[in-house]
Design a protein around this nucleic acid. Structure first.
Lengths: 194, 194
DNA sequence: CAGGTTCTGGACCGATCGTTCAGAACTCCG
DNA sequence: CGGAGTTCTGAACGATCGGTCCAGAACCTG
């Protein structure tokens, strides 16, 4: 009963995410969001609370996606772990952005002023780190990495590389160069075989 | 002739840089800058033009500093190149931030809307990459790195690691962990010896 | 000390910010 | 068909934004 919603909450979240990703949190006004989503400001507030709450929704969904993507790294034969890592660090040649850019961007902009974002961001880092660590352990069991190496630290190195590639993407470095760097990173790590 | 300035332009730029670094460009109002520097808005505008021009000054100085820091990597005996790299990637244990954070932050926030910032940021990346490449070549000549490796790509890998460590710092990862990752990165790269 | 110059801080501007709300629009149930 | 219940819309709010302006204090030179 009552008037039904004219919009899909998921669509709005996706559009808002695109907008936040392009212009940042402070750089995106509620009018911008209203224009981008086609919803009036009143509807936005009725559906999501306020601007910060809307961003939290977007950010949470984003973190969850990133975590799922990293967790998917672990699915498959252990002796193909490094191949899955290569695909994770690599991006289509025509891709200017990168899957994980909102996380890095929002963290940089808001972590120092918004405790909830900072906490969630750190939690996502821990989860991603854990996936990377498990991936290293898979590769170690498959004999593709030095079994004596500290998996925790090596996982951290992989995650560092992932974030560094995002930063380079944002600095305007083209996808081809980034992929060559990604390959070099995996080559370097893969040399750690006993 | 005339009344002399009561403030040091360098001090104001340093304070503004701290403020921009903490709260971002859009998150920092001119009133904030006025409060932080102790200067009235009138004086700020008389001395620096407008908010964007002030930021450009801060950003330019910042980029130049980063470039100098990277260039300093090349000064010293070639057989100590990897040691200098280690010091560059490492940070004091009590350090929560990181020398290069404004660059990454401003780039993420403004590159898509401000061509001047985007251009300068990319130029800084190119310069830093060049320094890293030369460092790799030094290490190669000293026999500490595989002479057959592509110095350009390996330099890019080092820069990627540098930026990735900045991102982790912003995500809340402690300095000790980051330094262990930095060591692992250098270890991995150093394995590339023929 | 006098005259000229610059710096300073606060009042002020229009624009935009995030947010609210009254009323129109619409669906469903009785 | 009519009223209850929900959503949508656009106008309007106060606060704050970036930016301007100027009267007067502060300072240097002669």
């Amino acid at each position: 009963m009552g008037r039904p919603r004219k919009f899909s909450e998921q669509d709005v979240l996706a559009t808002a995410r695109r907008q936040f990703n392009e212009t940042g949190y402070h750089g995106t006004s509620v009018d911008d969001l209203s224009r981008a989503t086609g919803l009036s400001k009143g509807s936005l507030y009725a559906a999501f609370g306020d601007k910060e709450a809307l961003f939290q929704r977007v950010f949470e969904e984003y973190c969850a996606n990133s975590e799922e993507g990293a967790a998917a790294l672990l699915e498959g034969p252990e002796d193909q772990a490094l191949d899955r890592l290569r695909r994770w660090l690599t991006v289509p040649d025509n891709h200017t952005g990168r899957h994980g850019c909102l996380l890095a961007k929002a963290t940089a902009e808001l972590a120092s002023e918004n405790d909830a974002i900072a906490t969630r961001s750190l939690a996502a880092y821990e989860t991603l780190l854990d996936s990377c660590r498990q991936l290293v352990e898979q590769a170690q069991r498959a004999g593709h990495l030095d079994p004596a190496a500290d998996a925790e630290v090596l996982g951290g190195l992989i995650l560092t590389t992932h974030r560094g590639l995002e930063a380079l993407a944002k600095a305007g470095v083209d996808a081809k160069t980034r992929n060559r760097i990604a390959d070099a990173a995996i080559d370097s790590i893969a040399l750690r075989v006993s």
